[in-house]
Amino acid sequence: METCVAEAPAKLSVHNIEKEFVLQGHKIHALEDIHLDIEEGEFVCLVGPSGCGKSTLLNIMAGLSKADRGDLRLDGNPIDHPGPHCLVMFQEHALFPWLNVLGNVLFGLKLKPHLSPKERLEVARYYLDLVGLSNFEKAYIHELSGGMRQRVALARALAPNPRVLLMDEPFAALDALTREQLYGDLQRIWMQRKKTIVFVTHNVREAVCLGDRVVLFSPRPGRIRQIYDVDLPRPRDINSINLAVHATEITTALKGYLKEAGAVAE
């Protein structure tokens, strides 16, 4: 199994990516020397404190912003524009208030010309059912709770069948109970659909709960410091002791890097 994965070409390959910003006259290395290969069907979590460049990398993967240097390929082809090959689920749900739940899920599907209206409706309903919102297709966004909104956003991102799903701290604004429910749902859906997912978070436990691999970033300059394999059985419970052990290990490492970065900054 191991060798088989190693021989297959990476789904999403990130090579030597660099990105700089100029903020108030200071040059900031948002990303430096980023290498990462993500396999088909893999769930990868990018973890780090705010400002470590993990969201910047996600935006570059989405085609929403450009790297200054480096090579980014999806199935061997460079990514240079946003599109339905890499769909993004944002921290704010970004659902359209002028459309109802079904209309939101259909939005991306309507941009797929090879589908008939009937097929689109079937696909949209399938995904609404998958996130447990079959009974709410006529509801408007403001009528839904925060957790339901993110479920709709998940359905909307999955429905056009992107090759990679990018998630930018999608659960950060939710309360703890709702979040735990969504961890369960997301794992169930991922095991069912085997989608390649890149998930950005600052929450180490969340990353260990969801990811096959946890990629640890440190800031100034934004770099990958370490990559952890998480081989806990699924579905994982965020409150389990085993998970806490992994999370503690990563958190300790993270604190070390932060201290180091802080010393450099001073």
């Binding site: 929403l64 946003p82 890499c86």
Partner: peptide, 14 residues
């Protein structure tokens, strides 16, 4: 119009 709507739409291929 919040820029996030436009970003979301563009990632969906709009």
């Amino acid at each position: 119009v919040p820029p996030i709507y436009v970003r979301a739409a563009r990632t969906m291929g709009s």
